[in-house]
Write a protein that binds this DNA or RNA. Structure first.
Lengths: 211, 211
DNA sequence: GGGTCGAGTCTACGGCGTAGGGTTTAAATC
DNA sequence: GATTTAAACCCTACGCCGTAGACTCGACCC
């Protein structure tokens, strides 16, 4: 709301601190040190400002994090839209959404949670997906179900990818386990080392949509 | 490790406090008041114990939460296993896993995160899924991809379901938005009010696996 | 009885989010 | 130019938090 250059009665210093600067600093801090390192005090230190000053631009910490997520959503690359077969449009959308989520690995949880709660920014993001599915000639109900499935898949994938980046890969855990407990997994993973899980998932879901 | 009735050197009071009691109290606290209400002090109060006493059974708070998640994983209903067509086994597994995740709504995030990080408990849970897919005659690579897709979908779904339970449903947000921004979604949701997203997603993915 | 050990307790530290109340400032009005 | 005004900013302080470190005390072993 508070634009940087208002024309109202009193103004102390000419906007040395703005909501945008705060969000940018917070995003940088999170990208560098993770979400748990984000505190009002550290953020203020980075901005060379008293911690309480931040509260004149953001009502509380939760709103700040939410603002961070909204900012990330706003970065979603505008899709080429409308061209090509619907399968390719859906694929392109899914990749763009995944890239968006993984662009800030320390923020994936917040992004996915916010999207799962269906914030307005998150809803806007999925419009092209709905458009592509509707253009494929699907009736309303199947469109909703197909879109929901895809979104849920991307959320789950992004969560897994960011978790895998921060911890040991599943193969390690699996190798350390008693093969008798997980015989099929042991055998299957011994015979094939995967990768490409995202594209394979897209293939499966798009095939399943087509019937 | 520390069983309730050990026969070891020194014991002040006869096991008034055990790891199990701590986990049970913590789980109750979380189920009642949410994960953010879980603090060592509140937990201690509930157990009528000094906060620091807890640290004799759990190294720190992160381990406590992790223990909570492991305990929930241990509750996974043992599947009927091995009987029926593979589609039904996969369906049954997915439903059981979803129910597990949603059994403690305030813990869904940590459950899904833990599973995404492929903890041993989480790996064990997915063995029946792998078994069903392998029994379907799928080669190793497709088994891994199909399982990954399904797990990611369930994770995304569970996250969405728990978020939707705590916030306004998407329809409300959508109705409050400018229809020009999200024309397809607006139209599609006007023509069909869904539900059954989980089963529809399963249908899509299982169809997609089958080719 | 003396020694050991471990569960339970107490105290205290450094960090957190943020309420409440000044203080400073520059634009707006006179 | 003087006065008014209200936003931006800063300071202090409160009540939480996780947990390190030292102490108490009762049970067991020798």
């Amino acid at each position: 709301m508070t634009t940087a250059s208002a024309r109202r009665p009193g103004r102390p210093r000419p906007g040395t601190l703005t909501r945008e600067a705060i969000l940018a600093a917070a995003l940088a801090l999170v990208d560098e040190q993770g979400i748990e390192a984000l505190s009002m005090r550290k953020l203020a230190a980075r901005l060379q400002v008293d911690p309480m000053s931040i509260y004149h631009h953001v009502p509380n910490k939760a709103a700040l994090v939410s603002g961070l997520v909204q900012a990330v959503f706003a970065e979603m690359a505008p899709l080429p839209d409308g061209s090509g077969p619907w399968q390719e449009r859906v694929r392109g959308w899914a990749r763009a959404y995944r890239d968006l989520a993984l662009a800030h690995p320390h923020l994936v949880l917040q992004i996915v949670t916010d999207a799962a709660a269906a914030s307005e920014a998150a809803i806007q993001i999925s419009e092209p997906l709905y458009a592509a599915l509707a253009a494929a000639g699907l009736p309303p109900h199947p469109v909703i179900h197909a879109a929901g499935t895809l979104v849920d898949f991307v959320h789950g994938y992004a969560l897994g990818a960011s978790a895998a980046a921060a911890a040991a890969p599943m193969s390690d855990h699996l190798a350390a386990m008693d093969p008798a407990l997980v015989p099929t997994m042991h055998r299957v993973h011994a015979e094939a080392e995967p990768g490409g899980g995202f594209e394979a998932g897209l293939d499966i879901i798009i095939r399943g949509i087509t019937r």
